[in-house]
Simulated assay, not measured.
Amino acid sequence: MLRRALIPLLLLAGCTATPGVDMGGVDMGGGGGIGDPLIAAATSAPSTFGNMGQYQGNPAGAARAIVQLEFLTNAYQTDPIWAPQANPIMVEQLQQAQAEMRQTLGIAQAAPAQNVVDALNAAAQQISAGNIQGAQLALSAPGFTLGGAETLRRLGNMQSTTLTSVAAAAVNQAAMMPNQGMGNRPFGGGMRRR
């Protein structure tokens, strides 16, 4: 009897959003994750942050891409479903890419991911609204060591890097291939092998 009562609860638990960093409504790749924001973010990683040079002159786009990188790095370390089955090499690649982006933008390595995500989301929204001063203010949040103007300049002058490219490819492969970091869950890395 107890098993029957637990089954709906377990199914409901599988439908909840990934805990950890709240992405503030950022689109994580539009539907590619079949309802799971981590899968959506992982499958779209190569086109989102695999080539940061694509954001030359587009600081709002760069900020959103780094939000996605922060989300994935945090989720693979803290999510109770994904962290235990994450490939440790892939997690290390995400951490290295995150550290590189934070160094590039003058964000303290110890800054909480949620603070970084909130500041970058706010900056992207302000840039999109044409409010450069608001974006600079958002990028002056605690942990942003260069000040808003310099951080915004750097967001608009992103370069492609090997670390972000490798991390994006690794997380995408894990999402697409069974048993490579996400494949032990239905719709998480393809069909289950029998």
Score class of each variant (00 low, 15 high):
99 A>T: 06
8 P>Q: 02
193 R>C: 15
162 T>G: 12
111 A>Y: 09
87 N>E: 06
38 L>A: 06
156 G>V: 02
128 S>M: 11
145 T>P: 14
144 F>R: 02
41 A>W: 03
91 V>H: 09
58 N>V: 02
153 R>F: 14
83 A>Q: 05
179 N>Q: 14
165 S>N: 13
161 T>N: 10
133 Q>F: 10
60 A>M: 07
103 Q>S: 10
180 Q>K: 15
134 G>A: 05
114 Q>W: 04
125 Q>M: 14
13 A>N: 08
49 F>D: 09
137 L>I: 11
27 D>I: 09
106 G>E: 05
84 P>Y: 01
24 G>Y: 06
65 A>H: 05
162 T>C: 12
77 Q>M: 06
146 L>E: 07
35 G>N: 04
138 A>Y: 09
175 A>M: 00
191 M>L: 11
61 G>H: 06
6 L>Y: 12
32 G>I: 00
9 L>E: 13
172 N>L: 04
164 T>F: 00
168 A>Y: 03
20 G>L: 00
4 R>H: 10
183 G>P: 02
9 L>S: 10
120 L>R: 06
181 G>L: 00
144 F>A: 03
67 V>I: 10
142 P>M: 01
11 L>H: 13
55 Y>I: 03
89 I>H: 14
80 P>I: 04
36 D>S: 08
179 N>F: 12
109 Q>M: 13
138 A>R: 05
96 Q>E: 11
152 L>E: 08
107 I>K: 01
184 N>P: 10
174 A>E: 00
84 P>L: 01
176 M>A: 09
88 P>L: 03
127 I>W: 03
169 A>F: 11
112 P>A: 11
118 D>K: 08
176 M>K: 12
164 T>S: 12
185 R>L: 12
57 G>A: 00
28 M>G: 10
116 V>G: 02
92 E>G: 13
80 P>V: 04
125 Q>D: 08
160 S>D: 07
99 A>E: 07
49 F>R: 10
121 N>W: 11
2 L>I: 13
49 F>K: 14
134 G>F: 04
175 A>K: 06
67 V>K: 04
35 G>W: 08
156 G>F: 08
141 A>E: 15
116 V>D: 05
27 D>H: 13
52 M>L: 01
76 Y>K: 15
188 G>A: 08
2 L>S: 14
2 L>D: 15
79 D>G: 03
36 D>L: 01
129 A>C: 03
147 G>W: 07
109 Q>H: 04
78 T>F: 04
193 R>D: 14
3 R>L: 14
98 Q>F: 01
116 V>N: 06
57 G>F: 02
